[in-house]
C-alpha cells in the first residue's frame, strides 16, 4: 500500500483479570499458589491500517475482534503493546494531541437501541459532542445536525424525535451521524449491520461506502458476516482466539485462503446458490480463552495438525507479498 499508515497496532494485547476474593487471598498468604484468573482476549496483534483503507476483521464469538476494535477506538486501554496514530505512539503525545487523536477515531456500534440514549432527542444525541468539543458553536448546532442527518439519508425534520420513534435502520443512521459529528478520519464499525434485515443492511452498507468516498474515511470493519466483509473491505484479517491468523488483500484471501481456519470458515459460510450442498463441517467447538490450547490455538480442530502444532505457536509471517498467515504448514510444504 502506497498510502501512509494512519493507525498502527504493535503487539496490542488485552487481558481481563478477576481480582482474588478474600478466601483466595488468604489461601495465598498461607502459601498456596493461586494465580489471578485472567482471560487474554487479544494477544499481540500487529496491524497497520493505511489512510483511506477499509480493513475487515472477521472471527467467531469470543475471538477478541470487538475488544480489538474498542482498543483502537480508545474505549479500552490496552494491557500491553502500542497504538500509533500517524506514526506516533499515542502514549507519548501531549494531552491535547492525544485528545485530538481520540476524536479522530470514532465507533459505530451493533445495537443502535442500546447505544443511543432513549431520553435524548436526535438533535442532542448527534449535536452534543461537537458542541462540547468546540467544533461547532451551540447556536449553530441545530443546522449542523440537520446537515449531518441529510448526509446519512435521514429527513432533518426528525431533529426533535426520540430514538424509539425510529426503525432499526434509521437508528443505525443516527448512530453513524453521531460518529461523524466530530469529523473523524477513522470509523471502527463493530457489527454495525448485523442486527438489520437484509434489505436494510444493504442500504446501510451502501451508506458506508458512499461516506467513504465523500469524506475519505478509513474503516476498521468488524463483522462475523463474511459476505459483508468481502463486499466492503480492501484487506481482511481473520482472528481466532485473540490472534490474527491470516491477513491478506480481500480478493486473494477469499479466492485462496491459506490458513486452515480461514479455509474452514470460508467453506462453511452459507452462500446464496442454486446448488444444494452437503455441509462438511470442522469438528469441535471454539476453545475457551480461559484455557487456550497449547501451540497453535486451532490445532485441536485442524485437519492438518502435526506434532509441532501443539508444541509451538506459529508466528504470523509474510508468505507472499502482502499476504500474512500464521501456520506451520507454510514452513514445511510452502504456501
Amino acid at each position: 500500500m502506497t498510502a501512509a499508515p494512519i493507525v498502527e497496532l504493535d503487539g496490542l494485547t488485552k487481558r481481563f483479570s478477576r481480582k482474588l476474593d478474600v478466601v483466595e487471598r488468604f489461601a495465598r498468604r498461607l502459601g498456596a499458589t493461586i494465580d489471578d484468573r485472567a482471560v487474554q482476549a487479544v494477544s499481540g496483534v500487529d496491524l497497520s491500517i493505511a489512510e483511506g483503507e477499509v480493513v475487515g476483521l472477521v472471527g467467531e464469538s469470543g475471538c477478541g475482534k470487538s475488544t480489538l476494535g474498542r482498543m483502537v477506538a480508545g474505549i479500552l486501554p490496552p494491557s500491553a503493546g502500542t497504538l500509533r496514530w500517524h506514526g506516533r505512539d499515542l502514549r507519548e503525545l501531549s494531552p491535547a494531541d492525544r485528545h485530538h487523536a481520540n476524536l479522530k477515531i470514532q465507533m459505530v456500534f451493533q445495537d443502535p437501541m442500546a447505544s443511543l440514549n432513549p431520553r435524548l432527542r436526535v438533535a442532542d444525541i448527534v449535536g452534543e459532542a461537537p458542541v462540547v468539543h468546540g467544533l461547532v458553536p451551540r447556536r449553530e448546532a441545530e443546522a449542523y445536525v440537520a446537515a449531518l442527518l441529510r448526509q446519512v439519508g435521514l429527513d432533518p425534520a426528525y431533529l426533535r424525535r426520540y430514538p424509539h420513534q425510529f426503525s432499526g435502520g434509521q437508528r443505525q443512521r443516527i448512530g453513524i451521524a453521531r460518529a461523524l459529528a466530530v469529523k473523524p478520519d477513522v470509523l471502527v464499525c463493530d457489527e454495525s449491520v448485523a442486527a438489520l434485515d437484509v434489505s436494510i443492511q444493504a442500504q446501510i452498507i451502501n451508506l458506508f461506502m458512499r461516506l467513504r468516498e465523500e469524506l475519505s474515511l478509513t474503516y476498521l470493519f468488524i463483522s462475523h458476516d463474511l459476505g459483508v466483509v468481502e463486499h466492503i473491505s480492501d484487506r481482511t484479517a481473520i482472528m481466532y482466539l485473540g490472534r490474527i491468523v491470516e491477513l491478506a488483500p480481500t480478493p486473494e484471501l477469499f479466492d485462496k485462503p491459506n490458513h486452515p481456519y480461514a479455509k474452514a470458515l470460508l467453506d462453511e459460510a452459507p452462500r446464496v446458490s442454486v446448488e444444494k450442498r452437503r455441509f462438511a463441517p470442522i469438528r469441535g467447538e471454539i476453545p475457551s480463552p480461559l484455557d487456550p490450547p497449547s501451540g497453535c490455538a486451532f490445532h485441536p480442530r485442524c485437519p492438518h495438525a502435526m506434532p509441532l502444532c501443539s508444541a509451538e505457536r506459529p508466528a504470523l509471517r509474510e508468505i507472499a507479498p502482502r499476504r500474512w498467515s500464521a501456520c506451520h504448514l507454510n514452513e514445511t510444504t510452502g504456501p
Partner: peptide
Amino acid sequence: LESVPSRNRRGVPLRSI
C-alpha cells in the same frame, strides 16, 4: 437476493430495496 452482498458485486453499491 440483490441485497445480499456477494462476490460478483464486490465494491459496487448493492441494489437495495
